[in-house]
Design a binder for these strands. Structure first.
Length: 573
DNA sequence: GCCGTTTTCGGCCCGACTGTTTTCAGTCG
């Protein structure tokens, strides 16, 4: 059972307990435990299998949860979940996703009217039954009806790259308002999460009313959800909620800290403040009534003797441990990357010539680019056979002579065949600079079989890196099933690298997988699998996730110059 | 249910906004 599956079960327990009106701190304990397991760098199963280690060593997992998780892994069942589901139909949880309906109101609907589906809820609102309940009235009933359709897509999240476009438009719009002195985007967007739920903006302004009026005039606004003196929320026509807070200058840093989150990070921070007799809120850090920090974000953290965490690290994962141990990792930056190591040209299914790709990479400030067209098995993409590949490499040699301060690497994305083995012979692979091995066919094979094929490829002395390690970039809806722990171990044992293939809408390795790669000592290559020159700029999305995974320049292989990189892979080739 | 410079019990982050109250509960982030 994967960590994500275990975490989902614990989350479900928390949801049902919340609906039941259980002790809120008990509910939070389940949620904390779920998050701790979800964020773990290695499978829970391998911790359980190791007699030297215990689940209770994980922050947030106590004796009770450790036992429950162990039972769950062993038997596939969680007793408390089974008991809860006997009392409460799982479908009630859909009601909790209606904006404005929390556990108390949802429980009242279930208890008093027997409502446990969205359809029943709609009918009850339309027939005026809901307004008869204590705590509900006509306005609530109307709001529920208006929000009921949102519930079904409440979990919808937006890719960071799409959110970024909207954020840039909103920032430009806010800057048109004369009252706005400063405007910043916060929230999960600022933390660089792969997907973003809603957008948060903070404004420093002398006239809050003017800013809100201006906000309300944004083209593409759907409806205003709420508006107070300092806070306003709208929903855009595209379905994304946008929150705005107008804050005073002396509180701007505290507000940035607060609204950047994550919530879990803030809970830890506030706990630490409380232990020191301080109080933190979105207005500042206070000792009694005296404000001791708040105008800038670094000052808020400094008041607690903490470093100003890069937003990407603020997830209550390892960052507080790192700070306590004396320092945060120096996270990789886009400018550290020397080149992309996975792209396609017109020789197979790319849209641009080798020369065009090289020019685009050089314009990005890179010093090398590996051309890795497909091998012959990928016939649909015009994959190259041995002769074609050798001719391409001769061509690359010729082009390289014309390039100054830039080098094209003779590469290939060689297919890991359905029956095992590679699509090109070792004698040819030996002549290349950079060999990436990827699975494209046989993606429906069993987890064991695909893992076996990949591990075998990682043992080939000519292979430098594994492309598409999770298959997420190949097939968003249904990535192939693979035992990543086995892949990490095989890569570490054979001195191979793992690719973080980045694309605006999806990545092969996400932030947690990056953290895992680091845990197992496997260097990551941040590459794009670009088929067109514009695709090369997707490296920034890979960098964001690598930063969230805590990766430094050293953890990423293509921060090295080509001679350094060659040395790094050379030993095993 | 977890945890410990608050240490095996008694805490557990904090405030804005709304709708329903007639002084506050519920929801949200």
């Amino acid at each position: 059972m994967t960590n994500a599956e275990i975490a989902a079960r614990l989350e479900l327990v928390a949801d049902l307990l919340e609906f039941q009106g259980a002790n809120p701190f008990r509910i939070r304990a389940y949620r904390n435990g779920a998050r701790a397991i979800h964020d773990l760098a290695e499978p829970v199963e391998s911790v359980l299998a190791d007699p030297e280690r215990h689940l209770t060593d994980i922050q947030g997992i106590g004796k009770d949860l450790a036992q429950k998780v162990a039972d769950l892994v062993e038997t596939g069942r969680l007793a408390i979940l089974d008991e809860l589901l006997e009392e409460i139909p799982e479908s009630v949880l859909a009601i909790l996703r209606v904006p404005g309906l929390g556990p108390k109101k949802a429980a009242a609907l279930f208890r008093e009217l027997g409502i446990h589906t969205l359809d029943q809820l709609r009918v009850a609102c339309e027939t005026g039954q809901v307004r008869t309940l204590k705590g509900f009235a006509a306005k609530t009933e109307k709001a529920i009806l208006e929000n009921i359709d949102i519930a079904s897509e409440a979990d919808k999240r937006t890719y960071w790259a799409i959110a970024d476009e909207i954020v840039q438009k909103l920032l430009a719009h806010f800057r048109e308002c004369e009252s706005v002195e400063r405007i910043e985007a916060a929230g999960s967007y600022r933390r660089g999460k792969e997907t973003v739920g809603d957008l948060d903006f903070l404004a420093l302004a002398d006239d809050a009313t003017a800013v809100m009026d201006h906000f309300a005039a944004f083209p593409g606004i759907g409806k205003t959800l709420l508006r107070g003196d300092t806070k306003m929320s709208i929903r855009l026509e595209v379905g994304i909620q946008v929150d705005l807070r107008v804050v005073p200058a002396e509180s701007f840093g505290a507000a940035m800290q607060y609204f950047t989150g994550s919530q879990a990070h803030n809970v830890v921070l506030r706990g630490m403040a409380k232990a020191r007799g301080l109080k933190i809120n979105e207005y500042g850090v206070f000792r009694g009534d005296e404000q001791i920090a708040g105008d800038d974000e670094a000052g808020v953290y400094a008041a607690l003797d903490l470093p100003c965490f890069p937003p990407e690290l603020r997830e209550a994962r390892r960052e507080f441990d790192w700070a306590a141990a004396g320092g945060l990792p120096e996270l990789i930056e886009l400018k550290d990357l020397c080149g992309d190591l996975h792209c396609h040209s017109t020789w197979s299914d790319g849209m641009n010539t080798i020369e065009e790709m090289a020019a685009a990479a050089k314009a990005l400030g890179h010093s090398y680019l590996a051309i890795t067209d497909h091998s012959k098995r990928v016939a649909m993409a015009g994959g190259l056979d041995e002769d074609q590949l050798l001719r391409q490499w001769e061509e690359i040699d010729r082009i390289n002579e014309t390039l100054k301060g830039f080098r094209l690497l003779k590469g290939v994305e060689v297919d890991i065949l359905e029956g095992g083995g590679l699509d090109l012979g070792d004698d040819v692979l030996a002549q290349g600079d950079w060999i990436v091995a990827s699975v494209h066919y046989g993606q429906n094979q069993s987890r064991e079989r695909i893992t076996q094929r990949v591990v075998e490829a990682l043992e080939n002395p000519h292979v430098c890196a594994l492309g598409h390690p999770t298959g997420r970039l190949l097939n968003r809806r249904k990535p192939y099933e693979i035992d990543m722990e086995a892949v990490f171990r095989a890569a570490a044992d054979n001195g191979k690298l793992l690719e973080l293939n980045a694309h605006p809408k999806r990545l092969d390795l996400d932030d947690l997988a990056c953290a895992s790669a680091k845990h197992y000592g496997v260097p990551v290559v941040i590459s794009t699998d670009a088929h067109i020159i514009e695709g090369l700029s997707a490296l920034r999305y890979g960098v964001l996730q690598a930063r969230r995974g805590g990766l430094t320049k050293d953890d990423v292989a293509n921060t090295r110059t080509w001679p350094q990189l060659k040395k790094m892979i050379g030993g095993k080739r």
